[in-house]
Amino acid sequence: MPSTQTLVQVIKAELKSAGLSYAQLARQLGLSESSVKRMFASGGEMPLSRVDEICRVLRTDFAELAGRVAEQRPELRELTLAQERAVVADPRLLLVAICCLSQWSFEQIVEHYSISPAEATRCLAQLDRLGVLELRPQNRYKLLVAKTLRWRPQGPVMNFFRDRVMHDFFAGGFDGEGELITLVHGQLSPAAARELVERLRQLAEDFARQHLQQQKLSEAEKRQYTLVMGMRSWLFEGFRQLQKPRRLTRTASSRS
């Protein structure tokens, strides 16, 4: 991510930590809320003079923000085999890891699940040692992995979900509000398949962005959703057994 974009992300994080909305920041800066939103939007412009003004509102300085930009590490998009084995070996650790990927606070975790504060703290500390997150004072944390973390296709976590979770997930009717299940089969060129896979990745990232943007909503306004996507070159075994043997295309030399 370019340094300018990273700076904007750091400022957004600081605003969230300070509990300042765009509307409140706009009033402090003497701007309209729409102007502030454009400034923080992708491709928006934020001159250094404006950064200085935002620093004043946040009661910090540019040097401190610049230091935090320098601390930014590229997000990991895949864990090592050893990391996955450690995460899946302890069901409570796996639960806390999934909650952290969803940006849940420490307080939300202990409120929603039968996990004591001591257990939750232990899990966060272990995830810190594993390099999944950076644990900060008062059980705050910074994720070191992408929200759209890719679990290894044949790794310990995906095998756990295949063995223990998939049946439970697909047993639902998928007929509730905001629910969908569909199955599409067809023949594509490898290039077209790669293009579709990339679009599916973008959809997963959009799901993650929507989740983060709606963190400020109350619990009564939200419901738990899980998005599962898969695409592979495959034909059901029962159908494959009914296929006729493919005829070999005769070449010009064999016909002569």
Rank of each mutant, 00 (worst) to 15 (best):
P2S: 08
L7P: 07
Q9T: 01
A18F: 00
L20Y: 07
L25N: 10
A26C: 06
L29G: 03
G30Q: 07
L31G: 03
E33H: 07
K37S: 07
G44E: 06
S49W: 14
I54C: 05
R56N: 13
L58T: 03
L58Q: 04
F62Q: 08
G67P: 04
A70T: 08
P74Y: 09
P74G: 01
L79P: 07
L79M: 15
L79F: 14
A82L: 15
Q83Y: 12
V96W: 03
Q103P: 10
W104L: 09
S105I: 02
I109N: 04
E111A: 13
P117Q: 00
E119I: 08
A120K: 03
C123P: 11
G131D: 04
E134L: 09
R140H: 11
R152M: 08
Q154K: 03
D163Y: 14
D163L: 13
H167T: 02
G176T: 10
G178I: 05
G178A: 02
L183M: 14
G186M: 00
L188Y: 00
S189N: 01
P190G: 00
L196K: 01
L196F: 05
R201F: 15
A208P: 13
Q214D: 15
A220P: 09
E221P: 03
R223Y: 12
R223G: 10
V228C: 08
R232E: 15
R232Q: 09
F236E: 09
G238I: 05
Q243W: 10
P245S: 00
R247V: 12
